[in-house]
Every structure is written in structure tokens, then in C-alpha cells.
Amino acid sequence: MGGEETEVHEGTQSLVLEAALFDSVAIRRSSRSVGLRSEASGRYERGVNRAELEIANRRALSLISELASGIIVQQEIADTRPDPSTWSRSIALRLDRVNQILGPIDLGEDAGELQKQDVERILTALGCQLAPSGEDSNHQTTWSVSVPPYRYRDLEREIDLIEEIARLYGYNRFCDTYQKNRKVVICL
């Protein structure tokens, strides 16, 4: 891929470390158009955690100092990222929708529904912050769920949260058949 003249070797005296973010769509297009795939292009195509860029940069500098006796001569930051508050989002989540999509849970002899505390426990474990937003017109529990910055690319809609709830609650804990009077809902 190039860089033979600039690669790091035993005699390397100076390094320039760049911690950068690139647009995943632009990286994917460029990689395909020139027919070159690299580990870096694959990572950027999937998206990079914007919120932890500084942490990763500080860790890299620390390791260079600690393991290679490197001396940091100069450090500059040119940050053009949007406001950090935009790296997170709030999603409305309805308990009745969770149960409508996922169906009944197996309680041994009986079937039941996921409870409010189950949903809160699961999403809190994922790093989400839940704020009750009251009840809807049917007196069902609703939340405003704040997604952590490192999940901003994969938790975008209510259905994404429901998928995570099912995954962490355990697919095997849901009934494998619907009751006769239960409406079947298929999400695409």
C-alpha cells in the first residue's frame, strides 16, 4: 500500500501521530474506487467512536513514552467535530411496543410480558440513561432513552433498542408460539 520509505523501524527517531476521524461513506467509496482494502479502511467504514478519540490518542502517546522512551515534543489539536452533545441521541421507547414486538416471555407454566424494571435494567447495563417520559394515552410506560456516544451509530430508532432488549434478556426466554388472540407483527 506504500509507505516503505516512511515506515517505523529500529532506527526511527521521529514520529508524527495523527488521531483523526474520517467519514465512513467517503472511506468506503475511496477504498472501492481504487481497489485497496486495509485494516484502517475497514475500521473507518464501520464507524469510529468519536467520543473516545482523545482517550485513544492519550493512550498511544503514553505507550510510546513508556515503552519506547519517546519524548513528546509538540502536541496540537485541530478539532472540527460537531458539538459533543450531538454524539448522543434520545429515543422514545414504549413498554407496550416492546411487548408487542417481542411477544410473551416464558414464565414456566404461564406466559407474561417484560416488565418496566427488566427494560430499565437491560438498557442501563448498555450504558443508556432512561428518563421516564410519563405514560401514553393508554397509560403505558414510556421513556426517553439517551444513547451513549459509543453506540450512536447502531442505536438510532426504537426498534434498535427493542432488538437489544431481546438480545440481552435472552431469545430463549421468549415463547416460541403466539397465543391465539395475539396479533403477529413483523418488522422489516
Results as ranks from 00 to 15, higher is better:
residue 100 Q to D: 04
residue 148 P to D: 08
residue 75 Q to C: 04
residue 27 I to T: 13
residue 18 E to F: 05
residue 56 A to W: 03
residue 98 V to W: 05
residue 142 T to Q: 10
residue 33 S to T: 11
residue 77 I to R: 14
residue 29 R to N: 06
residue 174 F to L: 00
residue 100 Q to G: 06
residue 45 E to W: 08
residue 115 Q to M: 08
residue 176 D to K: 15
residue 29 R to K: 10
residue 11 G to E: 06
residue 149 P to T: 04
residue 149 P to C: 07
residue 130 L to P: 14
residue 101 I to R: 15
residue 167 R to M: 02
residue 185 V to F: 10
residue 107 L to C: 13
residue 146 S to W: 14
residue 47 G to A: 09
residue 24 S to N: 09
residue 22 F to G: 08
residue 129 Q to M: 11
residue 103 G to R: 05
residue 156 E to P: 01
residue 62 S to L: 13
residue 136 D to A: 08
residue 67 L to N: 06
residue 47 G to D: 11
residue 4 E to S: 14
residue 30 S to P: 06
residue 138 N to P: 01
residue 166 A to W: 14
residue 35 G to V: 14
residue 136 D to F: 13
residue 90 S to Q: 07
residue 144 S to V: 10
residue 146 S to E: 09
residue 110 D to P: 04
residue 107 L to Q: 12
residue 11 G to H: 11
residue 85 S to G: 00
residue 150 Y to M: 03
residue 9 H to I: 03
residue 42 G to W: 10
residue 163 E to L: 11
residue 26 A to K: 12
residue 5 E to I: 04
residue 141 T to K: 15
residue 64 I to Q: 06
residue 145 V to P: 09
residue 132 P to A: 03
residue 181 N to S: 03
residue 62 S to I: 04
residue 84 P to E: 02
residue 114 L to R: 07
residue 150 Y to N: 01
residue 74 Q to T: 15
residue 125 A to Y: 02
